[in-house]
Write a protein that binds this DNA or RNA. Structure first.
Lengths: 360, 360
DNA sequence: TTGGCTTGAGTTACCGGTAACGTTACGCCG
DNA sequence: CGGCGTAACGTTACCGGTAACTCAAGCCAA
């Protein structure tokens, strides 16, 4: 059944190989390969015969061998993201997967949290599969990790965060697809500063010592300053117009809930609250409702993300909509282009949209 | 720099290979391989030297070659899930990835929706990578797909749904890790039937012609019948005690919101509503609030999933908590055991927990 | 001293594809 | 009818590892 030129050779694998198909079809391995892949170099009859035999024999191509033997035919891509617990990355990943699978690329994914060493370990491990491209979540990272990404010889795209724009990038940095979080925060800051005098508070989370969404907060703060919002002064060491709190927790409804409670207890005068994301903002709303605080009368609330919970609340949440699925798809497209050698811009801004809800 | 026994041979790849390291270290490829992998058959000095050289030369192992050359060393696993938009599968996937990566297995993931043909295509494509195991989401599938899974020669585990239990399984079926959705629905049904007389309604969604969570609804319905809840009779073709509606939409807050509106408009007498998941249930709550309906006074509401939104609402949601992360981890463990040849039970029930909230 | 056992390290033969190149057959054209 | 271009197909040489086997050296006990 399994055949080989040397009859005494032992076959490790029991499955049907290209050689088996070729022999049974009475053609060479090469011809069979071409016929199965549908390139050129065979007659119609030959192709039909090979396909028929392959089907009959239950031939399953071995992409391991293909990728190994060619070093151009490897259609693996690595995708490295911090978490899947937030719906954020789930949707981005879905967008990525959709596009990649549509052109027969296989994603291998890693969920690495916010720890640089874990990320680096995963990247090394992923590279040993010789993927033809890499997708990583854009975030602040250690010099070692950044250097690692810069020294890659395969195309790489950073998603989610544009990290300050073109001028701050080095040539060797990966492409970026996402939006400018600083600007998104600033836009919300301006919007709120035009409507409220403050004082302003912010509730976010810290994961493995990194403050998530730090750039948005920076943009937010900067916009408030530009709009002439004064820093409260007292118990505000960095003299910022925003009183912040960072919970050591996952970004979740519940974190928003008790984070708001903590912040308001320590600073009962706060009148405008900005959150790391919509889920936390909704948690904050729930707390305010429970305490009998009117929104936005007593406390104005703004979130981030445009998650669909915000749209159905009795009072619609004011937020910044981010287009997660689109980021995934756009990033995948950009990477595929780069892999195929087409020119691609280093920065792709998919934008955001300020959603004027009723909570702020 | 790149070396080869035949000096005139052309190297396709430019990267450092095992042979390069071995030559520079003055040992054979095989010894270098063993030293790098840390098996046996080398002295401590040899190993240290090889590691040092590999480090110096920037050697990156080629797992493609390793997997190809060994057919036991392939530590790829395929993970096939319907969607990542619901946080449900995100958390399961995170659990899976955690466990797999901890033993250096690489997951390749596919997001295939609820279409049998798409799933089958993905499975075929994934198999061509010769993974050592497969994780698929447990759900109703076509005979073709079920047969395909049964004929696999590699270990496979179905997650999420125990699908009726041991007696309904065939020997060739994949292992299952999850919980019994019928029982979960039945438990909720009994709980509600003991507190309310009805009439009962259910709001779910249909994706590509499959009703998600159908087994839970079946269990729910069956429990109501057992508790003596009568079918309303009129406009209820299948004579069920539950008036159902299935939206052609994603399971989301918004779907729950307008689904509830539709159902209540058509059936204003409904007094107890059961939902596909917590998000939809919360959407329903929001609608009720907006219509001035008291919960649970006018309408009682129960969800499913134990998503954290339910825990922070002013009135805590009555629901069934499912342990998604644990399902992922348990499933990965089971698959790894099976791959390593250890005995594993065909069914692993991670259970659920009825959460007695304040909405029902 | 000898023989057996352990241990370190080399040798060889693949694994199942793809790329590159060589050869043959055949149609087209003048 | 000869020259030529191209389509069809065969051959061969890898790719970068791993498994199985072999062998030499070192060690210890008898």
């Amino acid at each position: 059944m399994t055949s080989s030129k040397k009859p005494n050779s032992t076959r490790r694998s029991t499955s049907v190989s290209l050689a088996d198909v070729a022999e049974r079809a009475g053609v060479s391995k090469m011809t069979a390969s071409r016929a199965l892949r549908g390139t050129t170099g065979y007659s119609a009859e030959t192709r039909a015969l090979v396909l028929k035999i392959a089907e009959e024999m239950g031939y399953v191509p071995n992409r391991l061998a293909a990728a190994f033997g060619s070093d151009t035919a490897n259609n693996l891509v690595g995708i490295c993201i911090p978490t899947l617990s937030r719906e954020l990355y789930g949707q981005i990943l879905e967008g990525l997967e959709n596009r990649f699978s549509s052109v027969n690329y296989q994603p291998i994914v890693g969920v690495v949290g916010y720890d640089d060493e874990v990320e680096l370990a995963w990247l090394n491990s992923a590279l040993s599969w010789r993927p033809s491209g890499l997708v990583v979540a854009g975030r602040e990272r250690s010099l070692a990790n950044r250097t690692f990404l810069q020294s890659l010889t395969i195309p790489c795209v950073e998603i989610w965060n544009l990290c300050g724009g073109k001028d701050t990038m080095e040539k060797s940095d990966p492409m970026r697809v996402g939006f400018n979080h600083f600007d998104a925060g600033a836009e919300m800051g301006r919007y709120l500063a035009n409507r409220y005098q403050g004082p302003f508070g912010y509730i976010g989370v810290r994961d493995e010592d990194v403050n998530l969404g730090a750039e948005r907060l920076a943009g937010f703060t900067s916009a408030l300053l530009e709009c002439g919002i004064p820093a409260p002064g007292r118990k505000n060491k960095n003299n910022s117009p925003v009183t912040t709190t960072f919970l050591k927790d996952k970004a979740s409804f519940y974190a928003g809930y008790y984070g708001t409670e903590q912040l308001l207890t320590a600073n009962p005068d706060l009148r405008v609250l900005y959150y790391l994301d919509d889920n936390m903002a909704v948690g904050g709303m729930m707390l305010c409702q429970q305490k009998g605080l009117k929104i936005p009368g007593d406390v104005a609330i703004a979130g981030f993300g445009g998650m669909d919970i915000g749209a159905i609340l009795p009072t619609r949440l004011t937020t910044t909509a981010a287009f997660r699925l689109r980021i995934g798809k756009t990033a995948a497209d950009a990477l595929l282009k780069k892999i195929s050698g087409s020119p691609v811009g280093v920065l792709t801004d998919v934008g955001t949209e300020l959603v004027r809800g009723e909570t702020a």
